[in-house]
Design a protein around this nucleic acid. Structure first.
Lengths: 154, 154
DNA sequence: TATTGTTATACTCTATAACTATA
DNA sequence: TATAGTTATAGAGTATAACAATA
């Protein structure tokens, strides 16, 4: 399927340019992932945050420590379940989120405009929305799980 | 521009799922990046490889060391310029590239199919091709370079 | 002098598993 | 006993700069 191959090529090109730019914003990819996930929400528990990002439970503590040290996020005890911790962006964090997200959009826009000039943009937006949703729904237990295992690949 | 926002959301969802899957193939993202870049080529110098991937010069040495230890790539002296080193996939590396790429495509296909059902796939392929090309051309010196600097972001 | 690739350093991310405190 | 988050460890990637060999 040619579309899949094109999508993969577009993805790698996009990823490289995007991560290069994120670094110039003073954030690592994991940090941007966390900040982007917390943006425009009231915050969430570490568990939820780990589920929604690429960052695993053990790593998350360190990432949050660094973001907290920079006063970009705040941890609060969860009242209902005292094992849990509620993580949210601080004002400073929200400001960075807005700036970084806007800057990132500005960075990406010219590339995108060049590519999608002849596509129906409303349709494309809807398609991209479904695309993101499909990935976000299917956390554990993915559809079509490659055919080779870790052992074979090594 | 709604399309840009949708693209970013799709990108993050895609990235998370894709990197999760790459790890199950026994490769890190940087290693997959190198192997995918070397795939279907006669190889290239370290300089060229660093330029085309997200991996910087200093890091590349370590990544290549690990791939060489696993006999997935080979280093050869460049005859013309003896400062340079020519890096190429071994047979084993090519086999892994084919398998990993195919597995990754299989992994992505169902997600993609769900999303793009109502789009003109030939047009979409062309658009994605232009998209990848725009990023790949514009290595150093990007169009629309965000507005905030590293210092401000910290 | 400039360039290619390597080495060195300090920090960050990753996987994994043991641990603490709640539930 | 199970769960949420932390801590611990070893391996890997990152930015940056100094370095050796070659141009």
């Amino acid at each position: 399927m040619a579309v899949v191959r094109a999508m993969a090529a577009a993805y790698f090109a996009f990823r490289r340019a995007s991560e290069r730019h994120i670094r110039t914003l003073g954030l690592t990819a994991a940090q941007f992932d966390v900040i982007a996930t917390l943006g425009n929400t009231d915050g969430m528990t570490c568990k939820e945050l780990a589920r929604r990002t690429l960052v695993t439970k053990g790593t998350l503590t360190g990432v949050l420590d660094r973001l907290e040290r920079r006063r970009l996020i705040a941890r609060q005890a969860e009242k209902r379940d005292r094992r849990s911790i509620h993580v949210r962006l601080t004002r400073r964090g929200e400001a960075l989120h807005s700036r970084a997200f806007a800057a990132h959009m500005n960075y990406l826009r010219p590339y995108l405009r060049r590519a999608v000039a002849d596509l129906d943009s409303a349709r494309l937006s809807r398609a991209l929305g479904r695309f993101a949703q499909a990935f976000n729904e299917a956390r554990a237990g993915s559809p079509g799980d490659g055919q080779i295992t870790r052992r074979q690949a090594r």
